[in-house]
Design a protein around this nucleic acid. Structure first.
Lengths: 186, 186
DNA sequence: GTTGCCATGTAAGGTGTTACATGATTTA
DNA sequence: TAAATCATGTAACACCTTACATGGCAAC
């Protein structure tokens, strides 16, 4: 359960409502969640039960009432304990690679088409990430080291999509060169 | 539901039992599944109900009886339809990046330690993938184009872990250089 | 006055993992 | 005779997504 720590992480910067978190997930780029309500609100209830966050109701004169969650010392400790725990290998599920794996029944044009579509997807995502990174140069409340870490995280994503693009080019080149006779020397 | 197509894909080469599939997933490298029984056997039942595979019981004189599944024409058509369907962006969940994101409370040694652990994980996985690729030079029943595609799939994985390693080196370099003062020019 | 945003939540279902259960056969 | 492998399956649970439901306020 890793959304738990994503939430604790966001809360370690500032108190937030469920709705705030939902938005943060939705446009975070680096955190893959769909930003769906169900998980967020349930997890918040759970965190509260475990004493990792405290809850405060706010009934503003205008606007709907909201529950503001603040991380507790216990929550901070739990977060830190997770942060130093052994990192795992990334989970990478590339549906396109599976399509390729069984693509031999396709005609050359069909295969080329598939590859082009994938390239276009990756390309547009890359632009999104680059754009996002330029629009969010640095958050004001971050230490230099933290800022550096976040930049490197963004760069990791950017590099991933860039490498994916160059790989696609290689793939296509190898296919047009007489259907891949000397692909391994590329 | 993408394990469905992974199974159909394997069956498009040859008839297999659930147990065969389980082993293939377990040591496939490129297909991330845990190779757990539950999903495989359930999916096979489901595929059979849908008429995408046919089932044949075998009661060998020695050894347990087994159910051999063979892909049908309908199954082949379904597989092909999926293979040409629009590819999606890969799903990449990197727990380590999330740990980094909230790592600012750590002492420099703790952070360095975390990074080293991640590097070691990636390094050993890379060796595994490289080793696997060299041990399985080419399957006998593949067309040249198919062989090429599988090689490129393996290369995609290999390249991913390689890039992850170089990124880790950059990350560390930027941290030791006076805590990331000029990280962006890397 | 209707669309859109703020804000909370629930229902239902799909997807994936771990662990359990069974029984025969092969190998050490 | 004990352990490993072949072979099939179930139970329970964790995780994640889509869609639904409600209601107030703001802006056009």
């Amino acid at each position: 359960m890793s959304i738990k720590y994503a939430i604790l992480g966001f809360l370690s910067h500032q108190p937030l409502t469920g709705y705030d978190l939902k938005k943060m997930f939705a446009d975070s780029m680096t955190f893959y969640w769909s930003g769906n309500n169900n998980q967020i609100y349930r997890t918040l209830v759970d965190l509260h039960r475990q004493g990792l966050v405290s809850q405060e109701m706010e009934h503003p004169a205008s606007g709907p009432s909201r529950k503001i969650y603040t991380i507790t010392d216990k929550g901070l400790a739990d977060l830190k304990q997770w942060v130093v725990s052994s990192p795992e290998l990334p989970e990478l599920r590339n549906r396109f690679l599976m399509q390729l794996a069984w693509a031999d029944q396709l005609k050359p044009e069909e295969l080329a088409d598939l590859i082009n579509q994938y390239e276009a997807e990756v390309q547009s995502k890359l632009l999104l990430v680059q754009d996002y990174r330029q629009r969010n140069p640095n958050a004001p409340d971050r230490t230099p080291r933290e800022e550096y870490l976040w930049q490197m995280i963004m760069q990791n994503w950017e590099a991933y999509y860039e490498h994916e693009l160059t790989w696609v080019c290689q793939l296509r080149a190898g296919l047009s060169d007489e259907q891949g006779s000397q692909p391994l020397t590329l």
